Simulated assay, not measured.
Amino acid sequence: MAKYLLKVSYSAQGLKGVMKSGGTSRVKAVEHALAGVGGSLESFYFAFGGDDVYVIADVPDHAAAMAMAAAVASSGAISSYETVVLLSPSEVDDAMKVAVDYAPPGS
């Protein structure tokens, strides 16, 4: 499973829904949606500032993450949605062992 950080901001419509149904109902809704694409919820936090919600999710692959993003972002309840791929330290170690034949501009 791949791990993703989802950064979400609600629209006015979405905030009205949170005000009506509460925060824990959103956690349940996200758990349900993630399970539908074969994923699971690691953590869910509300915040204030640039984003309203931060979610860390385990999702099978990029296609499932894209399906989740499309469903949520097209709902009208979201003003912005960003998916960030998260890498473990061991994945970074593996990546640093890959040889890349790259020439920077001007070389």
Rank of each mutant, 00 (worst) to 15 (best):
V27H: 03
R26G: 01
S43P: 01
Y81S: 11
H62C: 03
S80A: 12
S90W: 02
L87N: 07
D93S: 09
S40Q: 00
S43F: 04
L5H: 04
S21E: 11
A95C: 06
P60E: 03
V59F: 03
A57H: 07
P60D: 05
I56T: 14
G106S: 14
Q13V: 05
A95V: 05
L87P: 01
A63R: 12
E91Y: 05
L34A: 08
A12L: 12
V84I: 14
A103L: 10
L34N: 10
D51I: 10
R26Q: 13
Y54H: 13
D61P: 08
M68I: 05
G23N: 07
A63F: 05
S11V: 10
S21K: 14
S40R: 08
S80L: 01
S75T: 09
D93L: 14
G22H: 10
F48I: 04
A70E: 05
V18R: 02
A57S: 13
S79L: 01
V55N: 03
E42D: 15
H32L: 02
P105M: 07
E42V: 15
M19A: 14
S74A: 15
A47P: 02
M66T: 12
V85W: 04
A70R: 06
A99C: 00
L86D: 01
S90P: 00
A70I: 10
G17Q: 10
A65W: 06
E31N: 13
M66V: 13
L5I: 13
K7Y: 03
G76Q: 05
G36K: 08
V8A: 06
K28F: 05
G36H: 10
I78T: 15
A95Y: 09
A2D: 12
V92W: 05
G14M: 07
S40C: 00
P60H: 10
S88K: 14
Y10P: 07
Y54T: 04
A57V: 09
K16A: 13
L5C: 09
M1R: 07
K20I: 01
S11E: 07
D58V: 03
H62K: 06
A103W: 01
P105I: 07
K3V: 15
A64Q: 12
L34G: 10
L5N: 05
V27F: 04
L41S: 08
A2L: 12
A69F: 01
S107R: 10
A12Q: 15
D93Y: 05
T83F: 02
A2I: 15
M1K: 07
F44A: 02
K7C: 15
A99V: 11
G76E: 01
V37C: 00
M96T: 15
L5T: 10
V55T: 12
G36D: 05
V55R: 03
S80F: 01
P89M: 11
V85G: 07
Y102D: 11
V98F: 06
M66H: 06
Y54N: 05
A2Q: 14
V84Y: 02
G14S: 11
V27L: 09
D51H: 11
P105T: 06
A57R: 07
A35P: 06
K7V: 12
Y81C: 09
K28C: 01
M19W: 04
A57N: 08
V85M: 11
T83D: 08
A12S: 14
D101E: 11
E82M: 11
